[in-house]
Amino acid sequence: MTRALNVLSKICLFASSFSLVLLVVIFGWLVFGRYVLNVTPTWVEQLSLLLVGYIAFVGSATGVHENSHLGVTLFREMLGSPFCEIASALADLILAAFGIVMMVACLELMRFGWSTNLPMLNIPESFRTLPALLCGGFTCLFAGTRGVLQIIQLFHTADASDERSL
């Protein structure tokens, strides 16, 4: 299971990185079109706004998986060994719950925006909400799995120490 999540995280990282490269390329085309061809491609602005969403949200889901996202761990680490592990598992489960809420809210936004097209791109407005929905789902999956595995490990460690004391 961990291997499958690692592969999924790498796919997210690749998609985010590819979006960043595509963003640089289309801005290069914007500069070339505006200053060399004297014809400004108007679709670049809309596509760049769309790509920034994918870069930020899908990339942040990878950060959740790799546990490199922004977090305040000072108080958790001050608790000591058993309480630190419990607080870490609890934080991951809360983060997973946040991911579910984010995913459900974005699903509603996607339904609302499906009938409206993005200007210049002629694709549904919902494609702007899709990266946030994906981020919520991946955050729930990555953090939830890590939280559940930490809880299982805590109970397994507690059972092993009980058997040793007998």
Rank of each mutant, 00 (worst) to 15 (best):
10 K>Q: 10
152 I>Q: 12
11 I>Q: 10
72 V>E: 03
79 L>F: 04
21 V>P: 07
131 P>V: 08
9 S>M: 09
35 Y>F: 11
39 V>Y: 05
82 P>Q: 10
29 W>D: 11
121 L>C: 02
41 P>A: 09
3 R>H: 12
58 V>D: 06
135 C>V: 11
23 L>G: 03
120 M>R: 15
36 V>N: 00
156 H>P: 09
80 G>T: 06
66 E>A: 11
45 E>M: 15
34 R>C: 05
146 R>H: 05
131 P>H: 07
160 A>K: 08
65 H>G: 03
149 L>H: 15
38 N>L: 14
9 S>A: 12
24 V>Y: 07
105 A>C: 08
61 A>Y: 05
88 S>K: 01
145 T>I: 00
159 D>E: 13
157 T>Q: 15
78 M>C: 10
74 L>D: 06
68 S>E: 13
146 R>N: 01
8 L>C: 11
13 L>W: 01
73 T>L: 14
25 V>K: 10
119 P>V: 07
106 C>A: 13
141 L>C: 05
100 I>K: 03
136 G>S: 07
27 F>E: 13
40 T>L: 03
142 F>Q: 00
111 R>S: 10
25 V>M: 12
87 A>C: 06
144 G>A: 12
61 A>C: 10
155 F>R: 04
127 F>S: 06
45 E>A: 01
59 G>H: 03
144 G>W: 01
8 L>H: 03
152 I>M: 09
33 G>P: 04
151 I>H: 05
57 F>H: 03
128 R>W: 02
122 N>T: 14
39 V>C: 13
75 F>A: 15
59 G>F: 01
139 T>N: 01
163 E>L: 15
69 H>M: 13
129 T>Y: 13
17 S>G: 15
119 P>M: 04
86 I>R: 00
45 E>Q: 12
166 L>A: 12
93 L>E: 02
65 H>F: 06
71 G>S: 14
51 L>K: 04
143 A>M: 09
56 A>T: 11
2 T>C: 10
100 I>C: 05
3 R>E: 09
42 T>M: 11
85 E>M: 14
39 V>G: 03
37 L>Y: 08
126 S>H: 02
1 M>L: 12
52 V>G: 10
38 N>W: 08
57 F>Y: 09
163 E>I: 15
146 R>K: 14
44 V>L: 02
141 L>H: 09
36 V>G: 03
60 S>E: 04
146 R>G: 02
130 L>M: 11
71 G>F: 02
83 F>C: 02
107 L>T: 02
6 N>Q: 11
75 F>P: 09
68 S>A: 14
66 E>R: 14
26 I>T: 15
84 C>F: 09
165 S>P: 12
37 L>M: 04
83 F>P: 07
7 V>C: 10
13 L>H: 02
109 L>N: 02
17 S>E: 00
116 T>A: 05
29 W>G: 01
150 Q>V: 08
79 L>P: 02
26 I>P: 13
18 F>Y: 12
158 A>S: 15
59 G>Y: 00
138 F>I: 01
88 S>L: 00
